[in-house]
């Protein structure tokens, strides 16, 4: 393979990665898990004034199978948590999660028996947004953080950098 030698190890895969991650980060499809007043700000975030279409995430998918970003907006009760986790499990990999607002992140002012004290007790959260409720700009910033995370991820080249595929099985808890 003369081309490989000329281009160096991993040249082709890292270039493909860049293209794949660029496409992935600019076409995130959020699953809007609007539970309380934060959902109103989330609607503003998708609406023309703040216009998340500039970041390629205007297509809210109400089907978990078509979504790759879950935005949990609002306080979450213990009864609702099971539904959220089930929806999360139905989303295809790779997937990301934004915990929007004080209530979703920590329980917020709802320090009582019925409200989950932070959705990170049952969901892997990538970005937390403080605020009660956060402004749409804050949600856009969280989305940009997710985009940055995706762009910095390896994808196709991970077999070469993280060991053999046998070591990459899902971690068990």
């Amino acid at each position: 393979m003369g081309l490989d030698k000329a281009l160096g190890d991993g040249f082709l895969t890292t270039r493909v990665d860049t293209v794949v991650n660029w496409a992935r980060s600019n076409s995130l499809m959020p699953m809007p898990m609007g539970l309380a007043c934060c959902a109103i700000e989330m609607m503003a975030f998708a609406a023309p004034k703040y216009d998340v279409a500039r970041f390629g995430s205007e297509a809210m998918r109400f089907s978990p199978r078509q979504a790759d970003l879950m935005i949990v907006a609002g306080w979450c009760s213990y009864k609702m948590a099971h539904a959220i986790r089930r929806i999360w499990d139905q989303m295809p990999d790779p997937k990301w999660c934004i915990s929007m607002g004080a209530c979703a992140s920590t329980g917020g002012m709802h320090r009582c028996y019925g409200v989950v004290q932070g959705i990170d007790n049952f969901l892997p959260v990538d970005v937390y947004i403080p605020g009660c409720p956060p402004r749409p700009e804050a949600l856009i910033h969280a989305l940009m953080d997710i985009q940055e995370k995706i762009r910095n991820d390896y994808s196709l080249a991970q077999d070469y950098t993280s060991g053999s595929p046998a070591e990459l099985t899902a971690p068990t808890i």
Partner: peptide, 8 residues
């Protein structure tokens, strides 16, 4: 909580 797949 960690994701069910290994993140790169």
């Amino acid at each position: 909580t960690i994701k069910s797949y290994q993140e790169p």
